[in-house]
């Protein structure tokens, strides 16, 4: 493995890259004829994708919240608030009755969800990237953990796609959103995996491609099914609350 990864500081790299670029191109940005792919990915593309992510997500959530919600006037048998929390929590695990039928599909789903979480939140360059954007920071896991998560996620995503095409029910239900959302999740994983042997701080265009793939994901997030990362909790909570009022468990 090359590049002294443990000592790598993404922030320092990005800053030095910017300084180097500014030194070489003291002409103001708007007057330059060309920008590098990395500059584009790190600059306007990132800003635009984050803007779309934020505005689109807020719009979608606000529009859902704006739908009419007539009050339930029936006499409650249980607490809606407790039911909402329970509904959110207990659906993290499949109903025991259906373990045999949906177990594999659930395991595959868990594999890439957990894998993605590890990649995004435990890899040093990603933590540093997030720190630059938000100021938040936390310790990273050793690189091999992320590499393993990347391999697991890649495999699980491929299996998920095979299941979606191979299972008659999933195939029938699928539409553009399902395949495109799969693609925008798959691309950052693959392009990130391709960077394993690229020296950090090398300014390799592959880094820019990876960044662009992440930005595509961010920009698509509010428009497609990836939004279930937020709406899943809302949906589960609503049903949990409704049925807890009834003293029922679905």
């Amino acid at each position: 493995m090359r590049g002294g990864r443990a000592d790598f500081d993404f922030g320092q790299y990005a800053a030095s890259s910017r300084l180097q670029h500014q030194a070489e191109n003291f002409i103001p940005f708007r007057f330059r004829q060309t920008v590098t792919l990395y500059e584009f990915a790190r600059g306007p593309a990132l800003t635009a994708s984050l803007a779309v992510l934020l505005a689109g997500t807020l719009w979608r959530l606000a529009r859902l919240a704006a739908r009419p919600a007539p009050p339930d006037l029936s006499a409650p048998r249980g607490s809606a608030a407790t039911g909402a929390l329970r509904g959110i929590a207990h659906r993290f695990w499949p109903h025991p009755r259906f373990g045999a039928t949906i177990g594999v599909s659930t395991a595959v789903g868990y594999a890439y969800h957990v894998g993605l979480a590890v990649i995004v939140f435990s890899f040093l360059p990603h933590i540093q990237f997030i720190r630059q954007l938000t100021g938040l920071r936390w310790p990273a896991l050793p690189d091999p953990v992320t590499y393993f998560a990347g391999g697991l996620t890649t495999a699980a995503l491929v299996v998920a796609l095979v299941q979606r095409r191979g299972d008659p029910v999933k195939r029938m239900l699928s539409r553009f959103d399902d395949y495109f959302s799969w693609l925008v999740v798959f691309l950052p994983v693959i392009t990130g995996m391709a960077l394993i042997d690229v020296p950090r701080g090398s300014g390799n265009p592959a880094v820019a491609v990876h960044l662009l793939s992440v930005e595509l994901l961010l920009a698509w997030f509010p428009f497609g099914k990836l939004m279930h990362a937020l709406t899943a909790f809302w949906s589960r909570g609503l049903t949990g609350a409704k049925y807890a009022r009834r003293g029922a468990l679905p």
């Binding site: 859902l64 739908r67 919600a69 007539p70 599909s105 999933k170 939004m227 949906s235």
Partner: peptide, 14 residues
């Protein structure tokens, strides 16, 4: 309604 909208919105077609 809000409930119907959120439910339809959250489906991942699994």
């Amino acid at each position: 309604t809000r409930e119907a909208a959120v439910h339809m919105d959250a489906c991942v077609r699994c």
